[in-house]
């Protein structure tokens, strides 16, 4: 593709822009499709958990439901409350959606399949996921309404608290992988399923996923929405596509967290059969990106599974879990990990 663009003989600046655009489309188009069908999968999976059948009627086996939902959202009227701050009210969905999409720029999908390969990729992702809370806070404030404001306040405190646990878990990954670069972190996990970081970093792995649930405002940590107490939290006043953007941002973030978890703890695109005789050769033809997507799909299912299983946390329990349970465990494990790296404990750190 890139050779084809260079063969067109465009001016250098235009060529760069065209290549960047092509890369962006190549990531965004599958991502948006995945977001659409993730919402469908969520409804189906939750329904099966509850012994129901879920959406059936639009398209064969209900498969066109997300398309119909998208069309419905696009054509619905966007209602702006009279007391709302018009500019910020409309800016908030964009601030939620933008970072959720921009974080995908640094994700490597295979050994040589990535849009950009930057040194501080992990920090970049962390910075952008922390920025996505602005959409929620501004939405809550600009709506000039009580329930959205309560939702925004809850979300702000929650995201800042869980970001610490998440950041500490990432510090462990950085220490084990000796790099901030996502590709190098995956390469450092080479050597079979026991070399992947989920084993030496087991507590951090679990904590990262729990913080991921909290960062994306998913059940059991969805107090920002909390429909039984504050209706739908920060989304109350939003309708049509302005609500749709929040919705899409949430699902894009969930997929991103799933993908990052599989990159950092489950060896990314590495085959799970590496180092096992016979099995390794039989599955050698499978491209790495398939393994990565399978692992990601598992975590995406886990998001839905957790939603179907656990009741919502109470707010003080949420804060206690974040500050008094998760953060001390991560700090303790970082100390242990540092000792293990200095002592060159095998087979991971020798």
């Amino acid at each position: 593709m890139i050779e084809f663009i260079s063969s067109l003989g465009l001016p250098a600046a235009v060529e760069t822009v065209v290549i960047i655009l092509v890369k962006a489309v190549a990531i965004l188009a599958p991502l948006l499709l995945a977001v659409a069908y993730y919402t469908f999968a969520e409804r189906k999976v939750l329904n099966y958990f509850q012994a129901r059948v879920g959406p059936l009627h639009i398209g064969p086996r209900g498969l066109l439901t997300p398309i119909a939902d998208a069309i419905k959202m696009l054509f619905k009227e966007i209602i702006i409350p009279t007391g709302a701050n018009r500019f910020l009210f409309l800016l908030a969905p964009l601030l939620a959606f933008g970072p959720a999409i921009a974080a995908w720029a640094v994700i490597p999908f295979d050994y040589d399949l990535y849009a950009t390969d930057i040194n501080a990729a992990l920090l970049y992702v962390l910075a952008l996921t922390s920025f996505s809370v602005y959409g929620i806070i501004i939405a809550g404030w600009a709506s000039n309404s009580k329930y959205p404001f309560l939702g925004a306040m809850r979300s702000a405190a929650q995201v800042v608290s869980y970001e610490l646990a998440m950041g500490f878990a990432l510090v462990g990954v950085i220490m084990a992988g000796q790099s901030l670069n996502l590709r190098e972190i995956v390469i450092a996990q080479q050597g079979g399923i026991w070399m992947w970081f989920w084993l030496p970093l087991l507590p951090l792995f679990v904590i990262y996923f729990i913080s991921g649930l909290a960062e994306t405002n998913r059940p059991p940590f969805d107090l920002a929405e909390g429909e039984s107490e504050i209706v739908a939290g920060y989304q109350v006043e939003y309708s049509g596509i302005s609500f749709g953007l929040f919705f899409m941002a949430e699902y894009a973030n969930m997929i991103l967290i799933s993908l990052l978890t599989s990159l950092m703890f489950l060896g990314g695109w590495l085959s799970p059969f590496e180092g096992i005789p016979n099995l390794e050769e039989w599955f050698a033809w499978v491209p790495g990106v398939v393994w990565l997507l399978l692992k990601t799909a598992f975590f995406m299912l886990l998001f839905l599974w957790v939603r179907a299983t656990f009741p919502r946390y109470r707010y003080d329990q949420l804060m206690r879990l974040g500050w008094k349970v998760l953060i001390p465990i991560t700090i303790a494990w970082l100390v242990i990990l540092g000792g293990a790296i200095v002592a060159e404990v095998g087979p991971w750190f020798d």
Binding site: A127, S130, I137, W141, V160
Partner: peptide, 13 residues
């Protein structure tokens, strides 16, 4: 941006 200003906005709002 990710932490300090979030708390700041929290208070200002």
């Amino acid at each position: 941006v990710g932490a300090v200003m979030v708390l700041f906005l929290f208070v200002v709002m």
